[in-house]
Write a protein that binds this DNA or RNA. Structure first.
Lengths: 139, 139
DNA sequence: GGTATAATTGCAACTTAGTTGCGTTTGTCT
DNA sequence: AGACAAACGCAACTAAGTTGCAATTATACC
């Protein structure tokens, strides 16, 4: 995604254009998988913004709905862009129990569950653990 | 669940019978919702086992499949008994965005997702956020 | 373009959740 | 009852995320 498109996303969300925001959002858009604060910092190299700034940026992006926190069950948070998500859910996340890699299963469609009377579903997320195709192949 | 049933569970799992284990497993069985280490300690009062022991106990119970870690998206882990779970998934968890309470939706049935060729599903878990019936009623 | 102002940043110090090492205690097997 | 491994408790530690505050910078307005 081009730099100007990233800027547009930020502007449309009513956020000020700053270098850290553009770089962080850009790196999430480039990555195919949810990233942690640390992974974002790595990708941005020596000139990466301060860790506090990364967290605060992720929070404000999440607050505007540009980014989601993915709950992968580890002790660290992962973030990913929200642009492929529908209103009530994004794609399932698959974590391989052998290689520990997490993939976004954008091709898998999951129905929204029907909740008991009185409950309103705002957001549904599905996490799957198992063995990925690469690990299955390598036996 | 009676004390002797709890002991049986531990014995069948091949775990030694110790006071902390029985009390921790019992408290998870009594609670209707996933609990954190801290919540377990609270429930057990002043004579609660050491925090380290609680964590280690939860890990060994989880290792034997008596207990599952539920990923509720906070920074803290939650544990719940596994006795109502099927092999590949337990019930969905519902967290209310207003009162922040989490409920186990044991009555809601979710199909296992079909994954692309080469992937093996070992465990699927579903997290739902929304408004619970109590909060809906109270408007 | 210059300036005022509030939002944003970076740093350091802090909090919280979970972990590790190690000496002591306890359950189980015989 | 005794041996021995497993489990426990404590204290010190690590990792992830948070807070306060002073310095910087994006935007709005002239």
């Amino acid at each position: 995604m081009s730099n100007s498109q990233v800027s547009d996303l930020l502007r449309q969300a009513g956020l000020r254009l700053t270098a850290p925001r553009e770089r962080i959002l850009q790196s999430l858009l480039e990555a195919g998988a949810p990233l942690t604060q640390e992974q974002i910092a790595e990708r941005l190299g020596a000139s990466a913004p301060n860790k506090t700034t990364i967290y605060r940026t992720l929070m404000s992006l999440a607050g505007k709905g540009l980014v989601h926190r993915a709950y992968l069950g580890e002790r660290t948070w992962h973030f990913e862009p929200a642009h492929h998500c529908s209103q009530h859910q994004c794609h399932p996340h698959f974590t391989c129990t052998r290689c520990r890699k997490t993939r976004c299963m954008t091709q898998v469609k999951a129905p929204l569950l029907a909740l008991p009377k009185g409950y309103r579903l705002e957001r549904q997320s599905i996490r799957i653990e198992g063995v990925c195709s690469a690990c299955t192949a390598r036996k």
